[in-house]
Design a protein around this nucleic acid. Structure first.
Lengths: 146, 146
DNA sequence: GAAATATTGATTCTCAATTTCAATAAATAT
DNA sequence: ATATTTATTGAAATTGAGAATCAATATTTC
């Protein structure tokens, strides 16, 4: 598999865009993040390396990352987008604790198949989907359930 | 089954709230809407009946409607909440055309069961879920696919 | 009815995300 | 290389949905 960095370079080239020091640094910071993170969290990390980089550039680069297929963005429900790596990672959805906000990655082949089938039954060509399950995690259930 | 209006009255009473002319009118307008609609669309309809009603009151009443179980709110992905009737209506998710924005209500018992199962496997008590399928509808596929 | 409480509409505020714009940098042509 | 065109940047202003504020009004309770 191609390196993530290479995928980004290819995307830039194919779209007539240039690699810049800022983009390189933001992509590096992005790739070194783990799990889910907000644009602000990435911005903070980027700022630690170069305080001159602006928030707008982080947003712009996150869009490039998303469009290039390296990043996946989703809104867990509070209006603040979360980003995560989407290259070399299996597709998954999320199970979210409504108390502590913990997010567990979930995946079910049967659901995925039924989704495709549902779309097909309605004559739709399925492109994408978003599934969020909300519940109370074991730890919070234990603490709160007395 | 209780009338929707009665459900709202009960909710108000149980929460120490009062029925007011504004709430009555907004609830009526809400109940006469079909399908999915935004807060702005409901506001427009309410304004036609009484231009004195403020947008804030529409938002406040939509929250009451949601909390009372009469309305369901969801964000199709663009940050603008859609509302729909949720009383006397079967639960359903949505299949959305990414071209014309058309929304089809979908429901699959197998998916629902697997969702519960997935939550259970992770020790979660499932409270809620949100599933959106994005694709291209037959009409748009026909028009665009040449 | 009087006092306490709730609700209203207008307005302001919030906050993430986008857009604007002049300055700078990069790519391309000469 | 140098000029010219084009793209990118950071700061700041803007956007837009929704929530919060607040004085005025309405409703409920005593």
């Amino acid at each position: 598999m191609k390196q993530a960095h290479e995928v980004f370079m290819d995307y830039l080239r194919d779209n007539g865009l240039s690699m810049t020091p800022q983009r390189a640094m933001i992509v590096d910071a992005f790739l070194s993040e783990e799990g889910h993170f907000t644009s602000e969290e990435l911005f903070t990390k980027v700022r630690q390396r170069d305080p001159a980089i602006g928030l707008a550039t982080v947003y712009r680069t996150l869009k490039l990352l998303t469009d290039s297929g390296l990043a996946d963005a989703f809104d867990p429900g509070d209006g603040v987008s979360l980003y995560e790596h989407n290259y070399g990672h299996e597709h998954h959805d999320h199970l979210i604790c409504i108390v502590c906000n913990r997010k567990v990655e979930i995946m079910d082949a049967e659901i995925e198949e039924r989704q495709r089938q549902l779309a097909r039954e309605n004559g739709f060509e399925l492109q994408n989907h978003r599934m969020l399950l909300y519940g109370i995690c074991p730890e919070c259930d234990e603490k709160g359930g007395h």
